[in-house]
């Protein structure tokens, strides 16, 4: 790549001296996130009740998992796939389109699934005889 690499993450909070150093830094960050996910996953049962409260149709814990996953996806794309160093045009063409289409698809399918669950649940249609 001809153009220079950007060596800072967290909006300039952490600045690395070289590309190699940045790669190891991002690895440490991703490992910490994965470790948090695994610990939360294993000790699911003994977590405080707050984690199990319903937020926007899903448990708070599940939202935490999904947000941590998106954070991981961001750093894989931005630093491992070098999206940070690409032009704004390429970055937006790839990221915005993908995120919009996925969000749209997920919203529609989950909405419909919730409706079908209600139809079974209220006994309008029986599936288990």
């Amino acid at each position: 790549m001809a153009h220079a690499h950007k060596l800072e993450i967290f909006r300039g909070l952490v600045k690395f001296k070289s590309v190699t150093q940045k790669i190891w830094g991002v690895l440490i960050f991703l490992t910490i996130i994965t470790a948090i996910e695994v610990v939360l996953g294993i000790y699911k049962e003994s977590l405080p009740a707050v984690f199990m409260s319903q937020v926007l149709g899903m448990k708070l814990l599940n939202w935490i998992f999904i947000i941590l996953t998106i954070v991981k996806a961001y750093y894989i794309t931005w630093d491992f796939m070098h999206m940070r160093d690409e032009t704004k045009g390429l970055r937006r063409a790839v990221v915005w389109i993908t995120i919009f289409l996925i969000a749209y698809l997920v919203f529609i399918l989950l909405q419909e699934a919730g409706y079908i669950f209600d139809v079974y649940d209220k006994g309008y249609i029986k599936r288990d005889f």
Partner: peptide, 9 residues
């Protein structure tokens, strides 16, 4: 998303 559909169902 299809997995999510079946799961929510």
């Amino acid at each position: 998303a299809a997995y999510g559909f079946s799961r929510f169902k």
